[in-house]
Design a protein around this nucleic acid. Structure first.
Lengths: 154, 154
DNA sequence: CCGCAAATGAAGCCTTGGCAACATTTCTGT
DNA sequence: ACAGAAATGTTGCCAAGGCTTCATTTGCGG
């Protein structure tokens, strides 16, 4: 293919950016479910389809489908008419997701985002926060806490 | 429905969070395309399907379908075998998206995220940044610039 | 002005993630 | 112990956003 116009140098790397964002997006739902299942297990010892569906704000067939995918990906296990449980990989992912979520929310609040908004935005943003960025947030939080930021309300 | 367990108070609002994230997600692709089309129009005076596809990192039928959706949503116009153009609403959205993207990247860099990473992460994150959060970022940037941040490497 | 390559369109397929409707299994209370 | 309710599973539908393959239109060079 010859593009006599669209190759100002960046056009070559540009697509990669979007592909990466799309990849992150495909993990997003899995992450949400895994985290939610982890929460339910912590609270009740098991995660029932009904509870998952309710908390995720979807109908139960949707939750079932998601769980199937989790099982296929080796993140969860379950038997018919029984609760859903996380595999080791699933539990690990859940923990990572939970920590990332917490860090992001704390960070947003620290830079002046209202707590409620931070919670809402974090839900969507978190899946796109890379390790490098997360580390930057953590560093920022440490410094902010150390220097007791002027207008930080933590 | 009666759930004797899953109503610790927060279970009622929880789903809303996810619904909102899902809604944002559904706009994400549109936003990307609109911004990209805006870029192409700025550069070449029109946006050709081929160029759009190339920059988005997708095949041309995918780009065509996306443009169809944009047209349906009243964000773009086009005639068969001709370039794609933005409606007023589309141009407005493109501008908003572009500014939000820029603010987010600047902000990330300001808090210590490496420039390249910031660019990559922003691509996914931006679609979930609410106006309130964006304002907080802007405020932060203003202050940081004013006080010439102590340990910020800008 | 005509042919051929490039660009665009059209059709059909896949997966994901929603949904509703219906079938089946568990569980619970009498 | 059993009937009805609740939970779960199954099936089939839809739209979005990918893809490939094939048809058509543009537009350029000879």
């Amino acid at each position: 293919m010859q593009q006599d116009r669209a190759d100002e140098g960046e056009a070559t790397v540009e697509p990669e950016r979007f592909n990466q964002a799309r990849a992150a997006q495909s993990m997003a739902v899995l992450e949400d479910y895994v985290e939610m299942i982890g929460d339910l297990i912590s609270e009740f010892g098991e995660a029932r389809i009904t509870d998952i569906a309710q908390r995720m704000g979807v109908t139960h067939p949707t939750a079932t489908k998601a769980v199937s995918r989790l099982k296929r990906e080796g993140l969860a296990v379950s038997r018919p008419y029984r609760g859903v449980f996380l595999t080791e990989a699933g539990a690990e992912l859940a923990e990572r997701v939970r920590m990332r979520h917490r860090t992001l929310v704390d960070f947003l609040v620290a830079v002046g985002v209202p707590a409620e908004t931070a919670e809402l935005d974090a839900e969507g943003m978190e899946h796109h926060v890379s390790d490098a960025t997360l580390r930057a947030f953590e560093t920022y939080l440490e410094r902010a806490r150390a220097s007791d930021g002027p207008d930080f309300q933590d």
